[in-house]
Write a protein that binds this DNA or RNA. Structure first.
Length: 629
DNA sequence: CAGTGAGCGAGCTTCCGCTTGACTT
């Protein structure tokens, strides 16, 4: 007399997995994500009628809906098992709205896809959380209002080239533009120091002259490149360094101190979407989009858990499997007594666990039969997951300090640090990649010979070494995703498409894996900064999230939230109206770009950017290779 | 390669987030 249940989840792959676990008592079907959308050709928000969105069925989901409907005919109960987050709750509500079930239905979430966990979940279940549904709808409506009212301002004031603005894409573009401005205004400076090469087989660099510390890169502002003058620091020019080297040529170098320090290094947390994209980019040179494509394929073939997640925590099954794998591969010294717990940042929605090899036993990469990019990405996930449950690496840093007096009586101090790995721990499996190739070297050993205080060294060579301060790097796809995530802008399912969007709109171009803003990108951000500054503030999304949390907790009314966003003196509607009248199209087409705009002015024309000099003569902008329209 | 204007007026563009296929960018 078993009752027949129809269970709806979001992902077809998840449905298949559950089907395999539960057998024929239940029918498991997938919604394939959201099933309703807002039509594209119009605002479709009924502002006078409580900001009611006008939803339509997503035509790409018709097949899925038809299948759910047909399965429902012979069922006694409907289980809404979409993801446990704001969007998932909303999908369940839309399902009820569309399916209009006659049988009883319950909302349910599965925290682990195991028979035990699912059967346990069947005992519970709850009603739809309408506050959460309201919070999702508020998000959806705000995004539509934002994008569909500000974008037309760009069309009319900048050009008619289908420009766009949005809560997520615009701050994303602004990051890229801001970074480029910093680079363009950056003033390079140089500083020098000395390197002494000893016959004993190592080298040391100069720390101080007469107790004044020799200036290094940290004494320069990282954004402007300017030197931060300090009376306790001495800045060496090339001439200073050459003279100092000469004055030290016959000096005695004596070791004054040898210090040992133990340094502990912890493994990185298991992958979440953003970190997977970062490492895919750094180690495998994949775009965010390609990383996700490969991960999707691994997920569908059953090799990894779900790839769109903001939660680095492993399930109990994942922890057990990672520890077992580490134990089998490296022995008990490499597995700590207690498992490591990783937790999501507070803004995360935590509907899924971390990205890890699937199942209760991790298949070794060489046993998967995978090839190419799939093998590489799986292998990276496998290593990182195992490493995350392994012991710390222990390194021993040895700092040797050396005194020497110049021929004219100045006291100089040199030093060097060697690194020895005492116990590799997780480093045997996995080391996090870096955007900075120099930093990757940190993980290599730099051994020093055995030396003791009082020992006199033989200096073979004392040479001056020049350094130049360097402007901040451009964003890569990886570092942009990382920054967006840190600011709480965008979601795991959208990071890759945010970047695609910036390219599609010609707001940025790619240069050697880095993102360079185009003139159009500069123009869009210039307009938005001047007239919609509060909307593209980097904190806008996190403020919105706070309000949505209040809606979800029933402390704030959805309608009140939308009204305060859209109406009133400071509301978006009047902001757009007044700016449409106020913005002088000619004025805003003159681009304010540091350095490049000094001699003549750059304008946005209908065929791209052009330069106009003082006499009104125009010419093509000469550096289109760097910045394009 | 040409490229900044005037004025007419029709027709069009645009958001974010959740899922996969279908696909030729």
């Amino acid at each position: 007399m078993a009752e027949k249940k129809v269970i709806i989840v979001e992902s077809p792959t998840k449905a298949k997995t559950i089907r395999g676990i539960l057998g024929s008592d239940c029918t498991v079907v997938a919604s394939n994500g959201h099933i309703r959308t807002l039509p594209k050709n119009d605002l479709c928000i009924d502002i006078r009628n409580g900001y009611k969105p006008i939803y339509i069925l997503d035509e790409t989901k018709e097949k899925a809906i038809a299948q759910i409907k047909s399965e429902m005919k012979s069922a006694d109960e409907l289980i809404l098992a979409t993801d446990e987050d704001r969007e998932g709750e909303s999908i369940s509500w839309h399902l009820v709205e569309v399916l209009k079930p006659k049988m009883p239905y319950r909302r349910m979430v599965f925290h682990e896809i195991t028979k035990k966990a699912i059967l346990e979940a069947f005992k519970n279940g709850r009603d739809l959380d309408m506050n959460l549904v309201h919070a999702q709808e508020a998000r959806r409506v705000l995004d539509r209002l934002y994008g569909y009212t500000i974008s037309p301002v760009l069309w009319s004031k900048l050009s008619n080239k289908s420009l766009s603005a949005g809560r997520v894409q615009s701050p994303g573009l602004r990051l890229v533009v801001d970074r480029e401005r910093t680079r363009l205004t950056f003033k390079k400076s140089e500083y020098w120091d000395l390197k002494a090469v000893f016959a004993e087989g190592f080298a040391a660099s100069i720390d101080s002259v007469d107790t004044k510390r020799v200036a290094n890169g940290k004494d320069f502002d990282s954004d402007s490149g300017k030197y931060n003058a300090n009376s306790k620091v001495i800045l060496l020019s090339k001439a200073d360094a050459v003279a100092l080297a000469k004055a030290l040529s016959g000096s005695t170098f004596t070791i004054s101190d040898v210090k040992e320090k133990q340094v502990i290094q912890k493994p990185a947390a298991p992958f979440i979407t953003s970190t997977l994209q970062q490492e895919g980019n750094r180690k495998l040179h994949l775009s965010a989009r390609d990383t996700m494509r490969v991960a999707q394929s691994l997920y569908e073939k059953g090799y990894i858990t779900y790839m769109r997640t903001d939660n680095p925590a492993l399930s109990q099954e994942g922890i057990r499997a990672a520890r077992e794998a580490a134990l089998a591969l490296y022995g008990s010294d490499y597995v700590p007594a207690d498992s490591r717990q990783y937790s999501a940042k507070s803004t995360a929605q935590e509907a899924h666990e971390a990205i890890r090899p699937a199942g209760e036993r991790f298949v070794a990469p060489e046993d998967t039969g995978l090839t190419g990019r799939e093998l590489e990405l799986y292998s990276m996930i496998w290593k990182r997951t195992i490493a995350s449950q392994m012991t710390n690496a222990v390194k021993q840093n040895t700092t040797v300090t050396i005194d020497a007096q110049t021929s004219d009586g100045r006291k100089t101090v040199f030093s060097t640090t060697g690194v020895r790995i005492e116990f590799p721990g997780f480093i045997r499996v996995y080391v996090e990649g870096s955007d900075d190739p120099d930093a990757a070297l940190e993980d290599k050993e730099t051994p020093l010979p055995l030396v003791a205080p009082g020992q006199v060294l033989k200096a073979n060579k004392i040479e001056e070494v020049g350094h130049e301060t360097k402007e901040p790097n451009r964003y890569t796809e990886a570092s942009l995703v990382q920054t967006l995530e840190k600011l709480g802008i965008g979601r795991p399912s959208t990071y890759a498409s945010i970047i695609d969007r910036l390219f599609e709109k010609n707001y940025v171009i790619r240069d050697n894996g880095t993102l360079v803003p185009t003139f159009i990108g500069f123009g869009v951000i210039q307009l938005l900064e001047r007239f919609f500054g509060d909307r593209i503030d980097y904190g806008f999304t996190s403020d919105m999230e706070n309000a949505l949390d209040e809606i979800a907790q029933g402390k704030l009314d959805e309608l009140q939230f939308l009204k305060s966003f859209y109406e009133g003196e400071k509301g978006l509607d009047s902001q757009v109206r007044s700016n449409k009248a106020k913005i002088n199209s000619k004025d805003i087409k003159k681009l304010d770009i540091p350095q490049l705009g000094e001699e003549s002015s750059i304008y946005l024309g209908p065929y791209g950017p052009y330069v106009r000099d003082d006499e009104g003569k125009t010419s093509q902008f000469p550096r289109t290779g760097l910045l394009q329209a």
